Amino acid sequence: MAMAVEGGGGGDLSELYSSSKRMSLKIRYDLERLERLEFSSASSSSLSSSNAVVPGSSDDQATAIRRDINQIQSLCADMDRLWRSISNKPQRDLWKRKVEQVSEEAESFRASLDKYQSRHQKRVQDAQERAELLGRANGDSHVLRIFDEEAQAMESVRRSSRLLEDSFATGVAILSKYSEQRDHLKRAQRKALDVLNTLGLSNSLLRIIERRNRFDKWIKYAGMIVTIVVIIFFWRWTR
Rank of each mutant, 00 (worst) to 15 (best):
G8T: 02
G11I: 01
L13E: 10
E15A: 15
S19H: 14
S20V: 03
M23I: 01
I27N: 02
R28A: 13
R28Q: 10
Y29P: 07
Y29F: 13
E32Q: 12
S44G: 15
S49D: 02
S57D: 05
R66Q: 14
Q71M: 09
M79H: 00
D80S: 07
W83T: 10
N88V: 04
R92I: 03
K96F: 00
V99P: 08
V102M: 02
V102Y: 03
S103M: 02
E105R: 14
Q117T: 14
R119C: 05
Q121S: 14
K122F: 06
R123V: 03
R130Q: 14
R130M: 11
L133T: 00
A137I: 07
D140F: 06
R145S: 01
I146S: 01
F147N: 03
E149G: 11
Q152P: 08
A153R: 08
A153Q: 03
R159K: 15
R159A: 13
S160C: 04
V172N: 06
L175A: 14
K177Q: 10
D183R: 00
R187V: 04
Q189D: 13
K191N: 05
V195N: 09
T198D: 09
L201C: 09
L206N: 12
R207F: 07
R207A: 09
I209A: 12
W218C: 11
I219T: 13
V230G: 10
V230I: 15
I232G: 00
R236N: 04
T238Q: 07
R239Q: 15
